[in-house]
Amino acid sequence: MDVDNTTLDQWQSVFGGTAGTIIGLAYYILLAIAMWKVFTKAGYPGILALIPIVNWFFLVKIAGYSAWWGLLALIPLVNVVFAIIVAIRVGRAFDHGAVFSFFLLFLIAPIGYFIIGFSADRYSKPA
């Protein structure tokens, strides 16, 4: 029996794209819920965590930098390095070390932000 590869490819692209969209949306929702609590602990309105670009600028402020530094996210390669620095600074602001910050705030962010948001950690603005 001969299988028509174009039909199979079409089905894979439809369901692959749908699955990717659902996973991405679930990731974003989990991250927004976790960041809502972190923003509230840091003294900012939690609703700002729902706005995709704005949440990055406020996360930069929580890390102790001016929100203008958030524009570094637009520069390729610099954005990755700066995201790691922001994750480490946010972790430090909630009394966590660099290893926690790198793995749980940069690589698997929702888990780290849930830990910070729903634990007894207190925010102290970085110097």
Results as ranks from 00 to 15, higher is better:
M1Q: 08
D2N: 08
V3K: 07
D4L: 01
N5V: 14
N5K: 11
T7R: 06
T7I: 12
D9H: 08
D9P: 00
D9V: 14
Q10V: 13
Q10F: 14
W11K: 09
Q12K: 09
S13F: 13
S13Y: 10
V14Q: 01
F15Y: 15
G17I: 10
T18Q: 00
A19R: 02
G20L: 07
G24L: 11
L25F: 15
A26I: 12
Y28Q: 08
Y28N: 06
Y28S: 12
Y28M: 10
A34H: 02
M35K: 07
K37A: 05
K37W: 04
K37E: 09
K37C: 01
F39R: 09
K41V: 07
A42G: 03
G43C: 03
G43M: 05
P45K: 15
G46L: 04
G46W: 05
L50P: 00
I51R: 11
I51A: 06
P52H: 11
I53S: 06
N55G: 01
W56P: 00
W56L: 08
F57L: 13
F58S: 02
L59M: 14
L59K: 07
V60T: 12
I62E: 05
A63M: 04
Y65F: 14
Y65W: 11
S66W: 07
S66K: 15
A67F: 10
A67P: 00
W69K: 13
W69F: 11
G70S: 07
L72M: 12
A73R: 10
L74G: 11
P76A: 12
P76I: 12
L77N: 11
L77Y: 15
V78N: 09
N79F: 01
V80G: 04
I84C: 07
I85V: 15
I85H: 13
V86A: 07
A87K: 02
I88G: 03
V90L: 06
V90C: 05
A93F: 09
A93M: 01
A93S: 11
F94K: 07
F94Y: 15
A98N: 14
F100H: 07
F100N: 10
F102I: 09
L105T: 10
F106V: 07
L107V: 15
I108V: 15
A109Q: 10
P110F: 12
I111L: 09
Y113P: 00
F114G: 05
F114S: 06
I115Y: 11
I115T: 08
F118N: 10
S119L: 03
A120V: 14
A120H: 08
A120F: 00
D121H: 06
Y123M: 02
K125W: 02
P126R: 11
P126D: 08
